[in-house]
Computed example of a mutant assay.
Amino acid sequence: MGGFFLGCDIGGTGARFAVVDAAGNPVRRGTASGASALLAAPGDRARLEASFKRIGASLPHPHNAAMIGLSGYGPEAFDDIAALVMQAMGIAAGGLTLMDDIELAYRVLFAPGEGHLVSAGTGAIGSHFRPDGSRLRVGGRGLMIDDAGSGGSIALAAVRALYRRLDEDGDYGDMAGLAAQVFEMIGSDDWAEVKRLVYGGDRGRIGALSLAVATAADAGDPCAQGLLEEAGRELARLGNILIFRAGDLPVAFVGGVLRLSPVVGETIAAHLDGRALFPEVDIAEGAAQLARRAFQRQSE
């Protein structure tokens, strides 16, 4: 059996893809722009198409199968998204598996019922997948309700703290370092520009501001450091809820927020009593391997 197998992990801020051959050897890796499968906000479809086209332009041929995890995916969107995949990558619906990016990460890390997962990127959510196929979800209800511990929530907490300090004192005081980093990333400290970013509906751009918070924290800004510690506590809370509700099992923490600063992981570990795992795993390559194994089982 020849051919290649594609795995993609597509979140709101960025996408990663990997290709393996029939023997499971990695042959290609790459990145693309982030996107959402919700296709609800203006520009969602264009961003998803752009991400798919970037990936498709880098793929070897022929493809036997692909497994793609997408932020915000639901089964009702399969036909629509499969058509985009076919157009951009040449992968037919029969060889395509689509799922929510959180389910993909869980499948790569655990068999159903073996553990818990907390994913912290643009958003933050905790999940446990049971052997019967059902799922326990905690958190992850979006920035307007509860994505505590996510990159988006860190960014908005920073903006909120800055404007409260400005309202109270007329300047940013000891938060000047945080202000400089945040407004540099936005491109302006003008309220109209900040408002346009925050209320423009682009979760990925909001979440990316957490990088500015991390930079300020590394430079010693106490407010930025406190925001990252609070994010760690919120993520640990999700893990402890999963343990309480679905069993005393290990909790794997993944996502870009974990890479912002060691403070996040250290805070999580301090609140998880030895149950926290921080796996160094390439979810995209894991997806490609799952696609390969599923194809081989079907071909036997």
Rank of each mutant, 00 (worst) to 15 (best):
G149R: 07
S150M: 03
G151H: 07
S153N: 14
S153G: 05
A155N: 01
L156S: 08
L156F: 10
A157V: 01
V159H: 03
A161S: 09
A161F: 00
Y163L: 01
Y163V: 03
R164C: 07
R164A: 14
R165A: 00
L166A: 07
E168L: 13
Y172A: 03
Y172P: 01
Y172T: 11
G173I: 05
A176G: 10
A176C: 02
A176W: 03
A176Y: 03
G177E: 06
G177C: 01
G177F: 02
A180H: 08
A180T: 06
Q181R: 15
V182W: 01
F183T: 09
E184A: 15
M185N: 05
M185L: 14
I186W: 08
G187E: 13
G187R: 10
D189M: 09
A192H: 14
A192M: 11
A192I: 10
E193G: 10
K195D: 15
R196W: 06
R196L: 09
L197M: 14
Y199V: 13
G200E: 14
G201C: 12
G201M: 09
D202L: 03
D202S: 05
D202H: 09
R203H: 11
R205D: 13
R205C: 07
A208L: 07
L209G: 11
L209S: 11
A212V: 09
V213M: 11
A216N: 09
A216W: 10
A217E: 10
G220H: 08
D221S: 12
D221H: 08
C223I: 13
C223R: 14
A224I: 06
A224F: 07
A224Q: 10
Q225R: 15
G226A: 13
G226H: 12
G226Y: 08
L227Q: 14
L228Q: 08
A231W: 03
R233V: 06
R233I: 05
L235Y: 05
I241F: 08
L242D: 03
L242V: 01
A246L: 05
G247I: 04
D248E: 13
P250L: 04
V251C: 00
F253M: 12
L258T: 00
L260H: 06
L260Y: 02
